[in-house]
Design a protein around this nucleic acid. Sequence first.
DNA 1: TAATCGATCTTTTTT
DNA 2: AGATCGATTA
Length: 756
Amino acid sequence: MCEYLDSLNPEQQQAVLHDGKSLLILAGAGSGKTRVITTKIAYLIRERGFPPASILAVTFTNKAAREMAARASRIEARACGAMLKTFHSFGAWFLRRNAALAGLHPGFVIYDDDDAVSLLGTLLEDTPKIELRKIAADISRAKDYFLSPEDPELDLVDHTPGFRGLYARYEEKKRKIGNVDFGDLIKMPVEILRNNAGLAAGLRDRFSVIMVDEYQDSNVAQFRLLYELKGKTTYLCAVGDDDQSIYRFRGAEVKNILEFPDRFPGTDIIRLERNYRSFAPILNLASQVVNHNSGRLGKTLTACRAGGKKPVLAFLPDQDEEARFCAELIGRSVTDAGPERARYSDWAIFYRTNAQSRGFETELVWRRIPYRVVGSLKFYEREEIKDALALFALLANPRDEVAFRRMVNKPARGIGGASVEKIIDVFEKQFLFSEKGLLEAARQAALSPKAAAGVKVFAGVLDRGRALLAGKADRLSARMPLKSGEGLSVCAAALICDSGLAGYHSSHDEVNGYQRTENLQELVDAASLYPASMDGLAEFLEHIELDRSIEEKNRPEDFDAVTLITLHNTKGLEFRRVVLTGLEQGIFPRDDKEADDLEEERRLFYVGVTRAMDELYLCSCAMRRMYGRTQPMLPSLFLREADKSLLRIIGAAPAGFGAGKGGAAGTHGQAGCGTGYGGYGAENGGYGAVTGKSSSDGRWKQGERVFHDDQGYGSIAGIEEGEDGPVIKVRFDNGHETRFLSTYQSSKFTKIGSED
DNA sequence: TAATCGATCTTTTTT
DNA sequence: AGATCGATTA
């Protein structure tokens, strides 16, 4: 009756059918956890009769939430009625509906990290930005741990004497303004639910099923939220993998998953340990390295995909060679005529820090290899965009002091620092609850004629924006630098143009060759999807704050390009062929890491390796330019932790790196690379040896040289027709002979080109 | 008010 | 090396 369950393995089925108690699914990398979650949602609706709206599934990223929604509704259309949200968007959803209870302005805006720093700046004048950032980060961390200014444990986050008081003042100011920061999106709902039994009961009644993805990356506050949401009969199902917890530095608490069964007594645990993604040799490497971690729940992943080649470990002279290595590898694979031919999008280059992407970009541009860099697009962090958003925010919540300070005199309207302080002062004394907030205060304050005139202009701009939202103003037909289309974009364009922001930035464009006007236009275009109303504005701002991924306009998702990406961003992704770069001590892991931090880095290595489906390459450089200096590097600890027999080593292994043992891999590395490496720039030699596969018919020629990890070099003595296809006869230089089917795949076998 | 010049620092960052 | 920030200068 449920054909969609048939394709699941027994554990997956068990997880989908599980019922009653709480469930913790320990899902190893590539074990099909998303499939289980989505199938389970569909199953609960279809077979168990749960109303879609009674199901809540929380994830950490919007991308994951979207994917989950799409996949679940493919199995069961009604699944689109389930609530699939990120933790933070769930919090925002909740607060928006209970803004009054939370003491928030109805049009409250979500502050990002920068805004939090600015807010702190109004509290601590003349404090260097870097200190403000540290304080903001600590406040954010405190909220991750569900700590309030009065909590004794706050000292564990920051024991600086003034911190507690500052945190309190920050909260007080934010409360006055009526906005929230990211941490509040989780922390405040918990507090509200604790203080409003009725509201809590209502929510518990609504959601009879709660599923959480990537549970290993949840923080204490998020645990508390779940705890509040879970009623006596709520079915709670958490999915995660303790080996993939990589956000500890941001407050993620592995204990959440380790102690889940204690926190929710009677929990059943189901392990998904069959890996469908990677070839066995790749998985072996990952397992072996992560085994060096202590305090794991422990899993034994088994590869369903037998065969495949060993991961290649390339020792390279420096980062330029590393970039060349990647480019050649990729270039060769896509021009390969055989069935092993790859597409650019099969490939991804992983690195630890964003700064490392540069070298790869230069090389790929040079070679005309298309690529996309994931996560480095900081559209919403650009000055002009933040400016525009501040204008919108001030319209949504006229008490937003941060936005007001940012924009009241930009571009210059003759409102200097003293005037601004005067305005704020008047506001706090007389207009705290005025509907027009700071603008009303600005109008009433006793200012110099110049400043007063400036205020009039600024307030007029916002008034017009407000009128547009209320449908009480004509749309502007005048020639504006920005084109507006539908809905909210009219108001957005009006604000940006009337305020002089567009002109201000377009003059910069001409001088500096920026493209800020274009960016502003893009923002206006995005606004056209929302209705021209106060609610539409709040919705628009909320969407931007909570989901900063922007669809690449000119590059559809399926654009055939290599992916450049930091290791952290790879979680949840997979690629056929992966190059994991910069495997050097000091880069990955960073050398200031020890104990728990080192274990987290090791998990990051694990995450990276397990992204690869078919082929994995690891690069380690002997020299690297860092901070403007070229310095010698040592291979990463993680490479030393791997058994050399699991790797195929090419390039010059540094002294002391497994070379002494004289194992097959080591010997091969030296020998195989004599040609491989030397012939680097050559068209056919070089890494053809590495990328060549031994699997296809017709690619074997008599006399061709091959290499076998155990037998060493040899050549193809002949090809015979057997029952199951062509049989290859190999005579090794050591005298041995062997036969194998041409379709046979062995990680120990490599074709190395027809001549020696 | 903007442009420019040195001093300083350098992770990862779903939301 | 390169970005970023704050102070200095025009």
